[in-house]
Design a protein around this nucleic acid. Structure first.
Length: 570
RNA sequence: AGGGGUGUAGCCAAGCGGUAAGGCACACGACUUUGACUCGUGCAUGCGUAGGUUCAAAUCCUGCCACCCCUGCCA
């Protein structure tokens, strides 16, 4: 069966129950198309967790040739402000999602929603209640006992309408009255016990200013927004499962048309060892422990982006987690890291950078020569770049050992090692400084072993990276540890149990050092991603440090080196 | 008898009456001019539990158990 937009339904393979339901709805004619919405409340930055919601909403629509509307759910003037809308647009663009349009609920829907409320009053579905917040709470009942009906519940529609209009016109003080839905105070689902539809609150709103002193509440406003903009599937997390009946009640009583959106819920995705919650993150920002909301250690989208994570990696990750059956799913951080490495391996340009240099003098070589390095050995189209080999080079301190552990196949005294892209060298002498540290190594290169033209037949088990003294420059490296200590798998729970936040956070989660990078990296731009061979993935930060380029360590390479036996100090 | 939801490996997760997919993690191997990548192998006689129906049950039925969410004029 073909849809009007050209999508052939019979070729679509459903990946979860929702998609099966959508296909059935489309086939039966209940829905003509798929319209979803992305409804952030503009009150904070987005986290990795949001990506799941947006991916599901955008990609479900995409799959059926439908569209997704970005809707600022700005119905609460006390929490919201304008600074976030721009950041959401940037995040969405980074993620590669294109909303059909951007709407502000406050501007686009409040008038219509007000009219719906009046209509509901006329129909006897809503009433003005004069109970205080405390009284509403006290009469709501408990989990096991029914609530009590409000004494104002049975006013006539005429009275209610008059009062409601007076509420709107600012005739009553804040909190003195509410508009409530007339549902069922004895309903076993507490959300159905006459939920508040409008409250009175004289707050300046960042977009609609002082136009309103009454504000619609979530249970009422959300389904109405969905109806007004034609959403067919309102996909939210399982935290709203208990609100589905309320949603459906309002769709029926407030909207009442046969074209009705459906609310469906997926599970929230939580990562181990990741701190979320605006309140806590804000505290961390204010404490100066991190540089801001876009600190590379932060789980905000702006943070992980600065860290060097890719949108593809994050989306692949949330897709791998799936729709979910439980209210919340907790996934080890390594599950995300897998997708980060997977993507970076494909796209990151290889380069040689020595993080902790040890000087090596090639005693039987003079001058310098060009060598060629693959930009990405796994991608034939990635090309190559030039580096040099010369008589003075630097290797990693850890790539030389006076006292090697078993299976150590890097450089040792009297041993050989291949320099990536260049020659095999042999270590003849270790030169010590006065303090007993190694000052430098004296090595000889073995002629005829140059990369790509080696016919020496020499077998060399190790290959190490290096930079040549005449082809390197200093850069700053920032290395990060997880903000949260390893033992706190669920920082949210620890915090809830009263653990002080200082105890949860890693004290020195960022270290900064200087490294020697091959000159090729001089032209690197902010957000460019590299693999520093044998070390890890790094990306260029927006900061400069002492005039140096700054590289953030995104993630290390996997390290399969496991020396058997006990490794002594090396 | 408040209501709602969920139990499949260390973590996600498919499965919808025909004999337990897949991914992460882990462990070994192979390959390797990145100890990366890639490739191979292993990893639940078992699906919360006890019964029942059936030739056949993770799937159907009954009872029990465990865990999560819900008492904002937040979203």
């Amino acid at each position: 069966m073909k849809l009007e937009n050209g999508i052939d339904l019979d070729t679509i393979v459903p990946e979860n129950e929702l998609e099966e339901e959508i296909i059935a709805d489309l086939k039966s004619g209940r829905s003509k198309e798929v319209i979803t919405r992305c409804p952030p409340e503009p009150s904070g930055y987005w986290y990795i967790g949001h990506v799941k919601a947006w991916t599901i909403n955008f990609e479900t629509a995409q799959k059926f040739g439908g569209k997704t509307i970005l809707r600022m759910d700005d119905t609460n003037p006390t929490k919201e402000d304008g600074e976030f809308a721009d950041s959401y647009m940037a995040d969405l663009e980074w993620l590669g999602f294109k909303p059909e349009k951007l709407v502000y609920a406050s501007e686009s829907y409040f008038d219509d929603i007000y009219k719906i409320a009046e209509k509901m009053i006329e129909n006897g579905d809503a009433y003005v209640c004069e109970l205080t917040a405390e009284e509403v709470s006290a009469t709501r009942g408990t989990l096991t006992e029914p609530g009590k009906e409000s004494p104002y519940r049975n006013r006539t529609p005429e009275e209610n309408l008059k009062l409601f209009r007076q509420m709107r016109d600012g005739k009553f003080p804040d909190g003195s009255k509410t508009l409530r839905a007339k549902i069922d105070m004895a309903h076993p689902n507490i959300n159905m016990r006459d939920p508040v539809m409008y409250k009175i609150s004289r707050q300046h709103h960042y977009r609609v200013g002082d136009k309103w002193c009454i504000w619609p509440q979530y249970d009422f406003v959300h389904p109405m927004e969905d109806c007004l903009e034609g959403t067919t599937y309102s996909l939210c997390d399982k935290g709203f499962q208990d609100h589905r009946v309320v949603y459906e009640w309002f769709v029926q009583h407030g909207w009442g048309k046969k074209y009705a959106p459906k609310q469906r819920e997926f599970s929230r995705c939580v990562l181990e060892n990741v701190l979320t919650g605006k309140r806590w993150l804000k505290q961390v920002v204010n404490s100066g422990l991190v540089s801001g909301w876009d600190d590379p250690r932060f789980p905000t989208l702006v943070g992980i982006r600065r860290r060097g994570y890719t949108a593809k990696a994050v989306k692949d990750f949330v897709r791998s987690v799936g729709w979910g059956n439980t209210i919340e799913v907790t996934v080890p951080y390594s599950a995300l890291e897998f997708y980060v490495r997977e993507d970076l391996n494909k796209i990151a340009t290889r380069a040689m950078v020595v993080l902790d240099p040890l000087k090596v003098v090639i005693t039987n070589y003079e001058g310098s020569e060009e060598i060629e390095i693959d930009n990405n050995p796994n991608d034939e189209n990635a090309g190559t770049h030039k580096a040099t080999f010369s008589n003075v080079i630097y290797i990693e301190k850890e790539d030389f050992s006076l006292n090697p552990p078993p299976k150590y196949n890097r450089l040792v005294e009297g041993g050989i090692v291949r320099l990536k892209g260049a020659y095999i060298i042999k270590c003849n002498k270790v030169v010590f400084a006065d303090n007993g540290d190694i000052d430098h190594l004296e090595c000889e290169y073995i002629a005829g072993t140059k990369s790509g033209q080696d016919n020496s037949g020499i077998k060399c088990k190790g290959t190490i990276h290096f930079v040549s003294a005449d082809n390197c420059f200093e850069v700053t490296i920032r290395d990060f540890k997880n903000l949260v200590k390893e033992e706190f798998k669920s920082p949210a729970k620890a915090l809830a149990d009263g653990t002080p936040i200082e105890e949860i956070l890693e004290p020195n989660s960022m270290t900064q050092s200087t490294a020697l990078a091959e000159n090729f990296l001089k032209s690197a731009k902010v957000e460019d991603k590299f693999q520093f061979m044998r070390k890890g993935y790094y990306c260029v930060d927006k900061d400069k440090h002492d005039g140096h380029l700054v590289f953030n360590k995104t993630i290390s390479l996997k390290d399969g080196f496991k020396p058997s036996g006990v490794a002594t100090k090396f």
